[in-house]
Simulated assay, not measured.
Amino acid sequence: MGQVVFKGIEGLRAWLAWTVVFAHLVEVSGLETLIPKAKIFDEAGDDAVLVFIIISGFVITHLIVEKKESFPTFITRRFLRIYPAYLLALLLAIATSTMLYQAILASATTPDWVIRHFMLEQDQFNNNFAAHLLAHISLLHGAVPNNILPDSQYMFLGPAWSLSLEWQFYLIAPVWVWAIQRKPLLVVAITLVAAIAYKLFLSKVFSNPSFLPGAGLWFLLGIATRLAMPMAPRLEKYPFAIVLGFCGLAVLDKRLAVLSIWIAMVAYFLQPKMWAIVDSRFARAAGMRSYAVYIIHAPIMVIALFISWQYRLSGFASVLAVGAMAFVGTVVASEFIHRWIELPAIELGKAIGRQRPVLRSRPLTVE
């Protein structure tokens, strides 16, 4: 397949990351209270994370199939890819937690459900700090149910619940991909049973599908897509009718919007044209920084919110001020993280990978 498999992936990641940023801005800035219909952007953030999960299944399967690394090499490279930037964001989030509680709980425009959430988080910060810190350092906090460690998934650094999910996936991905290539029906059945069991017995003790069985079907979709790509027909034109048809179904179930986006991307893989919206130099550059944007925007937004609160801004003035400061701060911070943390860690991971022979390796646009 080669590089064409990853055409548009970086650009899509940029769009998804900034969708999540805007969704969180809607939540914490009070825009949802001022304009109730803005809640739709919050829901778009949830969908964006699900598309991220599918992409992860697709990309990691490609790396496993093409690079054929040993598990120690694979997991070390994955660790280096996500953990250094995560650790910096986590430390900044912990350092700004008190600022967050002061600003968001004092705001008259903070939605009631957000206030309830952060009151619980403040209580956990004051009374259960060590347990939460240990869970977060292990990156397994997303697998800890709320009845054992309340608000474990969202504590300190809210967006990191999906990063914990990602780490759980990395730990079993090589076995999962190996098994599905040999016993596809059995693996699909096990994944489906695990998803049903999660829905019936565990979903109430997790705030989101941060435990791997809860998101297993989304990862499986990405895995299956990558494994099916060599058999997929080439398309001369972009199949607008198919994509628009699925987008139309999304009004019946919002989760179909996630499938629509992924179907659109798969169709894009299979046709020869390049679209600037996901494949321009700017889009690819933004995509390369998407992980840094995703992981650092929350504490940056907290700082912006605290400054707005200190200056007694309210209403739309506060929303605009927080939005502007959060955007600029996230761009600057993500550039720093990308240049000085991500890239050196990625290069170290590549060096580790070069220390052993690879049976087959093809150029990748995503590391």
Rank of each mutant, 00 (worst) to 15 (best):
M231S: 11
M155H: 11
L157S: 14
I104G: 13
P213I: 00
W309P: 04
A267K: 02
S164G: 10
V258S: 08
Y154S: 15
W218C: 02
F58K: 07
Q3C: 01
I35N: 11
Y294M: 14
I104Y: 15
Y268Q: 02
P344E: 03
D46Y: 03
I352N: 05
F206D: 04
D47R: 03
K7C: 08
D46E: 07
G245F: 02
P159H: 15
Q3E: 11
A326T: 14
I277N: 01
R182G: 10
I54H: 03
R339L: 10
A250L: 02
E32T: 00
F282I: 11
K183R: 03
S107K: 06
A89I: 04
T73D: 03
K68N: 02
F211W: 12
I137G: 06
H136T: 11
S162W: 07
S361Y: 05
L227K: 06
I40W: 09
P233H: 03
V65H: 11
A333K: 12
W275T: 01
P150D: 09
S361P: 03
G349K: 13
R77F: 09
F282W: 02
L92I: 10
Y86R: 10
P72E: 05
L171E: 03
K67Q: 10
T96N: 12
A283D: 09
E335P: 05
L305N: 15
G216C: 02
L171P: 00
Y170E: 04
L186R: 07
W309Y: 13
F219R: 07
I115P: 01
R339S: 10
L34E: 06
V21L: 15
W340R: 09
S138P: 09
Y238T: 11
T109I: 03
V302T: 15
V21K: 15
K254M: 08
L34V: 02
G158R: 14
P209N: 04
T76S: 07
G142V: 01
Y154N: 15
L186T: 04
S314R: 07
F74Y: 09
A143Q: 06
A106L: 06
A173W: 01
R78P: 13
M1T: 08
L171W: 00
L235I: 03
L63D: 10
H141R: 08
A257I: 00
A143L: 04
I303G: 14
P84T: 04
F52G: 12
I53P: 03
G30T: 04
H297C: 14
S260L: 04
D42M: 13
A130P: 08
A131R: 13
S361W: 05
H117E: 11
D47W: 00
S56G: 15
L220P: 01
A106T: 01
K39A: 08
A160P: 01
L88M: 12
A131E: 13
Q153S: 12
V331C: 15
F6Q: 14
M155A: 12
